[in-house]
Design a binder for these strands. Structure first.
Lengths: 153, 153
DNA sequence: TTTTATAGGTCAATAACATTGACCTATAAT
DNA sequence: ATTATAGGTCAATGTTATTGACCTATAAAA
């Protein structure tokens, strides 16, 4: 690989780092006003996308231990953003669901990010969204080819 | 914004989160074998890109406090990956530089990421790289329009 | 030349994030 | 009855990162 090509790729690494950092800044700022943090946002986001998700499914999605998930989940329930009720089909399973208050907060947080992505894709034209998504999917595919293991707690 | 559009944008948020997480996994694994961590990689990366960078410039780049940077920087010097020498033009300033050992480790870590990005861009065709970079630059631009402040320590 | 500012190093306290390990209850499946 | 699964919780540990305080050395300005 020649020096010039390596420099171009270094630019991509920098952009990835800086973009991710910028992207989480405004939600982080809003979260701190509510006395909660980034992991709470992730929980709100995934519960909003998949209502009645179980704790176990959320654990697998976020790739954290149940001990790490436990405190933020409990706080969100205590603060009235989320409910946790036994599933009718299996009473061991807890189904997580956002309350109206939780939906409002999730919307406030994620709208910042959705709005910015929408604005960028619209200004850059039609295929920018597909291409950006395709690159990201290919990055994630690195991992999917490796994870034929188990791993819980 | 209609429901379908919102779903598409939710996909981008998920992809961003999962892609970033996947992207840092393999370097993190290598780092832990050396008893160091992600911040050490960032330091190695930016010192490699800009040899003789000062501590202050590195602080501004990484947006951390000098207290947060201090321990990892010292460790890298102690472990022989980096040198920290007073600058000839201003003896208060320390110029950070990688040793050969440091260059080798930085290369090992970043090559994983450069290689993957290169592979993806090549497989996806010529304009995917420009478009992906342009989207990321636009995300970073959110922040640049806001940061007309100071803020040091 | 005294004063002030800058660059950097370091200690302490605090806290979010996340881990491993251990142990508990409740429920479901065998 | 036994075993497995889902979930909750306590404890100990460690990294990342913060704010606050205080120190030295050097440079620039008054």
């Amino acid at each position: 690989m020649d020096k010039n090509r390596e420099d171009q790729l270094n630019d991509t690494l920098m952009l990835f780092y800086f973009a991710y950092r910028t992207f989480t800044k405004e939600p982080d700022r809003i979260l701190s006003q509510h006395g909660i943090h980034r992991l709470h946002h992730r929980i709100l986001f995934f519960v909003a996308r998949q209502p009645n998700i179980s704790v176990h499914e959320l654990l697998d999605t976020l790739e954290v231990t149940k001990q790490a998930l436990h405190a933020p989940t409990r706080q969100l329930v205590e603060m009235g953003y989320m409910t946790s009720e036994p599933a009718s089909h299996d009473r061991r399973v807890r189904e997580l669901k956002l309350t109206e208050k939780g939906e409002a907060l999730e919307k406030q947080l994620s709208d910042v990010q959705r709005g910015k992505m929408n604005e960028i894709f619209e200004s850059m034209g039609s295929n920018s969204e597909e291409i950006w998504k395709e690159v990201m999917k290919n990055i994630i595919a690195i991992d999917e080819s490796k994870s034929e293991d188990g791993g819980s707690n």
